[in-house]
Simulated scan of single mutants.
Amino acid sequence: MSKILLIEDDLEMQEEISEYLKNFGFEVDFTDNPIEALKIFKNYELIILDLMLPKMDGFDVLKEIKKSDIPVIISSARGDIGNKITGFELGADDYLAKPYEPRELVLRINALLKRKNSTIIKISDFTIDKEKREVKIDNYPIPFTQIEYEIFYYLIKNRGKVISREQILHSTSLHPDTQNRTIDMHISNIRHKIGDEPKNPKYIKSVWGIGYKFL
C-alpha cells in the first residue's frame, strides 16, 4: 500500500481527496501545516501539494521536498501558465489545476509511482541504478562522487529543460552557501567523466546567464 501525504489547507478538499484515494488502496495522511509536513514528508512515497498554504508559500515547500527524490503533484487553484512554469522549474513532477476530476489524480499518481519504483532506468546513453546510485555508459560504471551523481541525476531526469544553478543548489545536498563557481566545477568534473566536450556538447549544454541543459 503506497503512502501519500496531502498538504492542503482546504478541510473539505482534504476529506474528499483522502477518502477517494483510499478507495483505490492508497494510505493517505493529510495536514494543513506546511512546517509540520516538512518534518515528516520523507516517510511518504508521494506528495500532493497545494500552493496556497498558511505560514509558508507552497513553492518554498516544494523546494525543500525536491531536495529528495520523492515525486510531487501540485494541486492548486493557481492554474495559470506562470505558476505552472515555476512549479515545473522547481521540480514538480505533475501539476493539476483545481477543479479537476479525482480519477485523473489517481491516474497521475499511478504513473508517477510506477516510474519512481523502477530501480533501473535508461536515459540517453546512460543506465542509472537509483538504488545503488550508480551510472553506467556502455556498461562501464562512471566514478561519480555523491554530489556529482545528484547533480547528474537531476539534470538527466529534467532532460530538455534549462536548469538554473539555483535549482541545482536546492535540489541536491549541496550546502546552501555553495557558490556558482563550485557548481560549475562539479559540472566540469561530470563532463570530464562522461567524455563530454563543453564547446561541442553531446550531453550537457551551458546556457549563458542561467545554468545548464541536458540534451
Rank of each mutant, 00 (worst) to 15 (best):
H170Q: 12
D138W: 10
I123F: 04
Y149K: 05
K157N: 10
F126G: 06
L107P: 02
L105C: 10
I120Y: 08
N117Q: 15
E134L: 15
N158Y: 03
Y140I: 15
N158A: 02
S164M: 00
I120P: 01
R108E: 06
I147W: 01
Q167I: 07
T172M: 03
S124K: 12
N110L: 14
K116T: 14
E104A: 08
E150L: 06
H170N: 13
I123L: 11
S118C: 01
K116G: 11
E150V: 03
Q146S: 13
T127D: 05
D138F: 14
L112R: 11
K122Y: 02
T172F: 04
L107F: 10
R115D: 11
P143M: 02
K161G: 00
P141M: 06
F152A: 05
S171D: 04
R115Y: 08
I109C: 13
K132W: 02
F144M: 04
Y149E: 01
K157A: 00
K114S: 09
L107C: 01
R103H: 11
R165E: 04
E131A: 13
I109Q: 09
I163M: 03
V106P: 06
L105Y: 10
F126P: 05
I128M: 06
D138I: 08
T127M: 08
L105F: 10
P102R: 14
V162T: 11
I142K: 13
P102Q: 10
K114A: 12
E148F: 04
I128H: 12
R133L: 08
R165C: 01
I151D: 06
I156E: 08
T172I: 02
Y154R: 13
K114C: 05
D125W: 01
S171M: 02
L169R: 13
K136I: 04
K161F: 09
Q167G: 02
Q167D: 06
D129V: 05
K132A: 14
A111V: 12
P143K: 07
